[in-house]
Structures are given as C-alpha cells and as structure tokens.
C-alpha cells in the first residue's frame, strides 16, 4: 500500500471523510473505512516527511556544490 501516490491517497482520504460527513456511509462499513483512512493518513505523513528529508539533503548538497564552484572559480 506504500506505493500509492500521495495525491491518490489524499483524494481517497478526502473521499472517505466526505462520505462520513455527508452520511453516505453504512454503519457496518464505518469501522473499515476509518481503518483505511488512518492508514492513508500514516502513508501521507510518511511521504511528506520523506520528501522533506530528501529535499533538504538535495538543497544542502547543491549549496555545497555552489560554494565549491565559487572557490574553484577564484
């Protein structure tokens, strides 16, 4: 389930919440849907954290590159 796209997961999550909000859901299905929503939230959170970490690393590496280049240029 971890290879779900963030945007897809988010869409599904909003769909579930929307259904609950609009009372379009069967009580029998509620627990199952909530379960699904919670694991979707977990996935989205992980994805955000991972992306943030990667971006941070890329930007740091990039800054190091620029500084190195500048020194070499001198």
């Amino acid at each position: 389930m971890n290879d779900v796209k963030y945007s897809k997961a988010l869409k599904r999550l909003e769909e579930i919440i929307g259904k609950i909000e609009n009372e379009e859901i069967d009580v029998d299905d509620l627990a199952g849907k909530v379960n699904e929503a919670v694991s979707l939230i977990r996935i989205c959170k992980e994805k955000i954290e991972q992306a943030e970490m990667e971006v941070k690393k890329v930007v740091e590496d990039f800054e190091v590159d620029i500084d190195k280049e500048k020194e070499d240029g001198k």
Partner: peptide
C-alpha cells in the same frame, strides 16, 4: 494532513 487526521 493534520486537519484530515482530526476529521477522521
């Protein structure tokens, strides 16, 4: 996500 979390 926090918002959705609280919703759920």
């Amino acid at each position: 996500i926090i918002h959705l979390e609280s919703e759920i």
